[in-house]
Design a protein around this nucleic acid. Structure first.
Lengths: 302, 302
DNA sequence: AAAATCCATGCCTTTAAGGTATGCCTGTCA
DNA sequence: TGACAGGCATACCTTAAAGGCATGGATTTT
């Protein structure tokens, strides 16, 4: 009893005759006759009563008709589901985003663009620090992540540059620094700094402070803002100056001016997009493609 | 996506490798490899990740595994059910029995014998007069029936003699008729008769009265009993005499004597077994066979 | 009576499935 | 490290299943 025979069988039942069904399923009538005969032998009982004028269902046949419809419907359902899964148009993608970047438009755009293209894929976004993301990408509990990569890239990860970025000095709009920008960060030691808590993004802050220390600069931190928007608000309020990623320019509150300094520009603070190279989830592949296409469209480091 | 491929697929999943599965399902490994490749092409996504050391399920494959098991299980269930139906091992048989014969041991024996042999066939027994049985046999609402056949047998019915029977005179055990039995029924006109209501079995009573009238005998009915057992009880109580089918001898209450009279013996009152000749229900065929075997074993007209 | 309809059978072609031999890759063990 | 074993894939061939065509028998319709 195969799907083919069941399909033929229901066609015959619904058309009322073998001949009519043969036209419907586009095979010759004798082939259909034989398939039904084979089915009857297989099931050990006749399904139709043959009269000179056409055929009619037996009790057994009537029972099979209902069952066959079910089986065929299940088959269709399964095939649709598995196909969709295989092509990544349904399924699930879990992605991590560093808390510092949840609000970054480029990432929001990628996420909403993906949801628009694949509305039936469940997109789960977790705010996670870079370190935990890397772990979860390894053990498979995360499919992809936007994060700061350390220099050493684990071999289980595929990594692409998502958004090139570097540092810039942020000052209040009436700061004297605007008229006479310093050449070196070391000259900023007498200024008050607004800073973020290390716990909110250890990789970023360690990398940043490490870099500044190498320039022999130890900022005098007088104020803590939870995230970059808060920090810039505090800067705008004249409570101090800060060093922030360049992308902050685009969503800064009014009252802040940005001063580029060679030493800061040289510091790479790019955000990476990473996924487990062994994770072959089709939905993830689609997500990866979407991300890479978005990156390409905008050009990295815009 | 066919059952075969699904079967192979679950075998591979459960064995953990294509090679192991090929040994399990008794086909060569390359054939199995190809079937899975075909399945993957058909579903438009890979089901396994091939590593040098064996294979492992993809997300899609894992989903298919659950579905495939279901589909295969359903197939088995359907095949078992339809096969059973086709062989008449399950299903339903509706049989009519004239109210006058519900209590006849031969019929009870046939019914219980059938239930013993085919315990999973639902046997529905309806007490019906001969006329309605014939109608219901025609329109298909009855599969078989035990009934009095009229002389003209409808062409849609197959009929077999179930139990040959004729009439006998029943009298109380101290009746003077025992010592001096009459030669002709016409001589019984001065006796009180216990009779049944016509409505309980019109074919029987019409046939019986018709026969008696042709012998120029019109019984003086003084008492009505609902069925033959009741009638015989009334006879035993001395309320009158009666004419009953010969089979009544076997389940008569004490206090009744039976007198055979040539005129009564000649009257055929046999019970027939009938079914619709177009009804091919396997369960009915089994019932027919059971009935015919029982009739043969006992010999008709015992 | 002729035509049309429908199912079944015989014979042949095409396609799907299976078998054997072999190659490639990788992890294992001496 | 190099031979070996286990496992999957490919190539090539054989066998079995499915389908097509022609035809026949039976019955209803015209």
């Amino acid at each position: 009893m195969g799907f083919r025979q069941l399909r033929y069988f229901v066609a015959i039942v619904e058309e009322g005759s073998i001949s009519a069904a043969s036209r419907k399923v586009h095979i010759a009538q004798p082939a259909l006759t034989r398939q039904i005969q084979a089915l009857e032998v297989d099931l050990g009982g006749s399904l139709f009563e043959r009269g000179a004028k056409g055929i009619s269902l037996t009790v057994t046949g009537r029972a099979l008709y209902e069952e066959a419809k079910q089986l065929l419907e299940n088959r269709e359902r399964v095939m649709a589901r598995i196909s969709s899964l295989g092509q990544g148009v349904i399924g699930k993608v879990t992605v991590g985003v560093t808390v510092a970047h949840l609000w970054v438009p480029q990432i929001k755009q990628v996420l909403s663009g993906f949801q628009e293209r694949y509305p039936r894929v469940a997109l789960e976004v977790y705010p996670l620090l870079s370190g935990p993301q890397s772990e979860k990408l390894q053990d498979g509990s995360l499919d992809a992540g936007f994060l700061y990569m350390e220099d050493k890239i684990p071999d289980y990860l595929n990594v692409r540059l998502f958004q090139r970025d570097n540092l810039v000095l942020a000052v209040p709009e009436h700061s004297p620094l605007i008229g006479s920008p310093p050449d070196e960060v070391a000259q900023l030691s007498q200024y008050n700094f607004v800073w973020g808590p290390r716990s909110s993004s250890p990789v970023y802050y360690d990398k940043l402070l490490d870099y500044l220390h190498r320039l022999d600069f130890y900022p005098r931190v007088v104020q803590i803002g939870a995230d970059n928007v808060t920090i810039l608000s505090l800067v705008a309020a004249g409570l101090g100056i800060s060093i922030v990623p360049d992308t902050c320019k685009w969503f800064s509150p009014p009252g802040v001016r940005f001063i580029e300094m060679p030493e800061l520009t040289q510091c790479d603070m790019s955000v990476s997009f990473a996924w487990n190279s062994h994770n072959q989830s089709p939905a993830l592949q689609n997500f990866i493609n979407t991300v890479l296409e978005c990156s390409r469209d905008e050009g990295v480091g815009s």
